[in-house]
Simulated scan of single mutants.
Amino acid sequence: MNNLACVYSKYFEYEKTRELLTESSRGLFQTLGPTHPDTLIAQENLAMVYNDLGGSLRDDGHSIMLDVLAKRKEKLGKEHPFTLLAMCHLARTKADRGDFEEAEALLYDGLAVAKQNLGETHIGTLYGKTHLGRVLLMQRRYGEAEDILVDTIKKYELSSAARNGEHPDRLIAMRALDRLLSRAKQDPRGDRCF
Rank of each mutant, 00 (worst) to 15 (best):
residue 187 D to A: 15
residue 20 L to F: 07
residue 86 A to S: 15
residue 55 G to K: 11
residue 127 Y to K: 03
residue 72 R to V: 02
residue 146 E to V: 03
residue 39 T to G: 10
residue 114 A to G: 01
residue 24 S to P: 01
residue 5 A to Y: 07
residue 29 F to W: 11
residue 137 L to F: 09
residue 78 K to G: 01
residue 87 M to P: 00
residue 131 H to T: 02
residue 101 E to D: 15
residue 135 V to I: 11
residue 63 S to K: 15
residue 10 K to T: 05
residue 63 S to V: 12
residue 79 E to N: 13
residue 20 L to W: 06
residue 166 E to D: 10
residue 26 R to N: 07
residue 156 Y to G: 11
residue 59 D to L: 13
residue 11 Y to E: 12
residue 41 I to D: 04
residue 27 G to R: 13
residue 47 A to M: 02
residue 65 M to Q: 14
residue 142 Y to V: 07
residue 107 L to M: 06
residue 137 L to Q: 04
residue 56 S to Q: 12
residue 138 M to H: 10
residue 104 E to T: 14
residue 35 T to V: 13
residue 3 N to K: 09
residue 26 R to F: 07
residue 132 L to R: 02
residue 69 L to P: 02
residue 115 K to M: 03
residue 85 L to W: 01
residue 130 T to E: 00
residue 148 I to N: 00
residue 53 L to E: 09
residue 32 L to Y: 06
residue 38 D to W: 04
residue 28 L to N: 10
residue 107 L to T: 01
residue 193 C to E: 02
residue 183 R to E: 15
residue 158 L to W: 08
residue 90 L to G: 06
residue 147 D to M: 12
residue 109 D to S: 11
residue 172 I to K: 10
residue 133 G to W: 06
residue 149 L to E: 02
residue 53 L to M: 13
residue 113 V to M: 04
residue 63 S to N: 13
residue 128 G to D: 03
residue 88 C to I: 02
residue 99 D to G: 04
residue 84 L to H: 07
residue 21 L to S: 02
residue 53 L to N: 03
residue 131 H to D: 05
residue 26 R to M: 06
residue 6 C to A: 09
residue 11 Y to L: 14
residue 11 Y to F: 12
residue 139 Q to V: 13
residue 192 R to C: 15
residue 127 Y to E: 00
residue 64 I to P: 00
residue 181 L to K: 14
residue 53 L to T: 00
residue 58 R to L: 14
residue 65 M to N: 03
residue 86 A to R: 03
residue 185 K to L: 15
residue 161 A to T: 05
residue 35 T to N: 07
residue 88 C to W: 00
residue 55 G to D: 06
residue 116 Q to T: 09
residue 55 G to M: 10
residue 71 K to L: 03
residue 16 K to M: 07
residue 182 S to Y: 11
residue 81 P to H: 05
residue 23 E to K: 13
residue 180 L to W: 11
residue 142 Y to C: 06
residue 56 S to N: 08
residue 28 L to A: 05
residue 191 D to A: 08
residue 11 Y to R: 14
residue 40 L to M: 10
residue 170 R to K: 15
residue 24 S to T: 14
residue 83 T to S: 04
residue 77 G to D: 00
residue 104 E to K: 14
residue 115 K to P: 00
residue 189 R to Y: 14
residue 55 G to Q: 06
residue 86 A to Y: 02
residue 181 L to I: 12
residue 20 L to G: 02
residue 38 D to C: 09
residue 72 R to I: 00
residue 52 D to E: 10
residue 102 E to C: 13
residue 17 T to Q: 03
residue 5 A to M: 09
residue 128 G to F: 12
residue 168 P to R: 08
residue 128 G to P: 09
residue 88 C to K: 04
residue 96 D to V: 03
residue 16 K to P: 04
residue 3 N to F: 07
residue 188 P to F: 09
residue 23 E to H: 08
residue 137 L to P: 00
residue 141 R to D: 02
residue 69 L to C: 05
residue 191 D to V: 09
residue 34 P to E: 13
residue 186 Q to T: 15
residue 32 L to F: 12
residue 140 R to Y: 14
residue 133 G to A: 02
residue 3 N to T: 11
residue 58 R to A: 15
residue 107 L to Q: 05
residue 178 D to Y: 10
residue 118 L to Y: 08
residue 185 K to G: 14
residue 162 A to W: 08
residue 64 I to C: 04
residue 172 I to V: 12
